[in-house]
Every structure is written in structure tokens, then in C-alpha cells.
């Protein structure tokens, strides 16, 4: 029996050990070290960091205007992107699951942008906005092509939304397709026999039945949008004049450009808390809605 217990313990160490070591060393250690740094003035280089108490948090809430702007920008971006991507993704899923030709081809095309990295996609669109659009506007005189796309805060915001929606929609569509295909044909047919209209069919039958997929897609979009970095970094670098600097970029610049590692850590902790709460709230609300419908 004793031998058996040592045996099990050895197996625990052998099987769980490696995962625990890598996870602890990288994630757990960083997380707690980050909390410590949030209360210091560490500059990233010196070996010592001075304890400054709540000073960094005071700076964030009173002195730093940009961080508030970045938070609000991320919020606006998140709300817009979550709504747009899910609406278009669900719309495309509904179209592709109808008996149209080349459904698999369409599905692949809509998914395609998702497999390419955000940095590359951002550069692709920088060319579209600054190279292709001005050129197109000479052939097709649409105001849409003449806007200063990456040149001011308003158009910059929408430029990011366009790229990000284009990138994420296909992924959500794939999840919606799987969920729509899982709906029992008999339900749809009996509703049709009962004379349900297209709108009724969608709101009373399809929507409630794909509720779990909606929860997943809202969750994914929420977590991708709040953390958005790559696309903005290559598209606008947060400019012009920091007007498209999302929260993740703000943390990056604070730490690695201004060398305020302590202040950056404080922002990083706040970022985690806000993202964590937002995610929890979203999941619990949509879960409740899932059960009700």
C-alpha cells in the first residue's frame, strides 16, 4: 500500500510536473511579480524597484489623460466590433447554410482572413487605405474612397473596425454554421407547415436554438476586441496623435517606450481586472438568457 502511494505520487510528478513547472514559471510567477511591480517605480533596467504604494494607481486615475482615452476607445471599439462581427457572421452563416451552390467555397473565403496574422493584415489594409483607395477614387468617385482613412481619429476608428470585423467574422461564422446545422430539420419543417414567416422562424426557432453558439461568439469577440493589438500596431501604430491607441497599446508604450514598468504594471493589473469582470458578466448574462429561451 505504501509502495502504491509512492508510486502514485511519482506518477503525479511525472505527468503533472512538467505542465506545472512551465505554467508556474511563466504565468503564475509573472502574474504575482506584476502585482508587486504595480506598487513600485521600476524602470525595467535597474535591479532595484522602490515601493511607491498606490502612487501608480493615483497617476492612472488623476494625471494620465491618455489612459482614460484609451480605455474609452477600447470600450467603443469592443461594443462596435462585437455587434458588427456577430451580426455579419450570423448573417453569412444563415446564407451559407441555405442550399446555395459553392457553399464550401464561400465558407473558406469568409474564413480566410482569420488564418493570417494580425500584423500582416494590418499592413495589407494600410496599403488598401493609403494606396488603393486614393487610386480607386479617381476611377469611382465615391466619397468612401476619398476619406483620409488613417489620417484622423474618426476614420482611424472605423478603419480598425473594418479590418478587425473582416478578420474575425469568418471564425464566428464557422461556429454559427455548426450550430445551425445541428438544428433538427423536423422542427423547421413543422414550423413551415404551421405557416411561420421567415422572421418568426428566425426569432422563435433558430435564435433560441443557437443560443449556446451566441454565448461562445460573444465571449470570443469580447476577449479578442478588448485585447486588440497587432492589427492596430501595423495599421496606425495608435496614431495619429495616439487617437487610436487601444488599452493594450497604451500598456505596451508605457512600459517599453516610456520605460515606466511600474506604471505599466499597474495598468496591466487594472486591464486584467476589467477584462475579467466584463467576461464574467457577459457569460453569466448570456447563460441565463440561454436557459430562459
Amino acid at each position: 500500500m505504501v509502495r502504491n502511494r509512492t508510486h502514485e505520487l511519482l506518477n503525479d510528478i511525472a505527468f503533472l510536473g512538467p505542465a506545472v513547472i512551465f505554467f508556474t514559471m511563466i504565468v503564475v510567477a509573472s502574474f504575482f511579480l506584476g502585482i508587486y511591480y504595480a506598487f513600485t517605480d521600476w524602470n525595467g533596467i535597474s535591479l532595484t524597484a522602490n515601493w511607491v504604494g498606490l502612487e501608480n494607481f493615483r497617476t492612472i486615475f488623476t494625471d494620465d489623460r491618455q489612459v482614460g482615452y484609451s480605455a474609452l476607445f477600447t470600450l467603443r471599439l469592443t461594443i462596435t466590433a462585437v455587434i458588427l462581427s456577430n451580426t455579419i457572421g450570423l448573417g453569412l452563416a444563415l446564407i451559407v447554410t441555405r442550399a446555395i451552390k459553392f457553399a464550401n467555397g464561400f465558407r473558406a473565403i469568409f474564413f480566410l482572413p482569420n488564418v493570417i496574422g494580425g500584423i500582416i493584415l494590418g499592413f495589407v489594409w494600410r496599403f488598401i487605405f493609403t494606396g488603393a483607395f486614393p487610386s480607386l477614387s479617381r476611377i469611382i468617385p465615391l466619397q468612401f474612397f476619398q476619406l483620409p482613412w488613417l489620417g484622423d481619429a474618426f476614420t482611424g476608428f472605423w478603419a480598425i473596425i473594418i479590418v478587425f470585423t473582416w478578420r474575425t467574422t469568418g471564425y464566428l461564422m464557422v461556429i454559427y454554421i455548426a450550430s445551425i446545422l445541428a438544428i433538427d430539420d423536423a422542427l423547421i419543417e413543422s414550423a413551415q407547415i404551421d405557416g411561420a414567416s421567415g422572421v418568426q422562424m428566425f426569432s422563435r426557432i433558430i435564435l433560441p436554438l443557437i443560443a449556446p453558439a451566441i454565448t461562445i461568439c460573444l465571449f470570443l469577440m469580447l476577449s479578442w476586441s478588448t485585447k486588440i493589438f497587432d492589427v492596430i500596431f501595423s495599421l496606425t501604430r495608435g496614431g495619429p496623435f495616439k487617437s487610436t491607441e487601444a488599452f493594450a497599446l497604451n500598456i505596451y508604450f508605457e512600459a517599453f517606450q516610456a520605460n515606466n514598468y511600474g506604471l505599466g504594471s499597474a495598468k496591466a493589473i487594472l486591464f486584467f481586472v476589467v477584462v475579467g469582470i466584463a467576461t464574467l458578466v457577459q457569460v453569466s448574462i448570456t447563460k441565463r438568457w440561454e436557459i430562459e429561451s
Binding site: 504565468v27 510567477a29 509573472s30 502574474f31 511579480l33 506584476g34 508587486y36 511591480y37 525595467g44 476577449s223 478588448t226 485585447k227 493589438f229 488599452f247 493594450a248 500598456i251 505596451y252 512600459a255 514598468y261 505599466g264 504594471s265 496591466a268 493589473i269 486591464f271 486584467f272 477584462v275
Partner: peptide
Amino acid sequence: PFQSVMIP
């Protein structure tokens, strides 16, 4: 989020 642990 990755940005929450990248500094430490």
C-alpha cells in the same frame, strides 16, 4: 490577457 503579464 497577455498584456497583463508581459511586463514582469
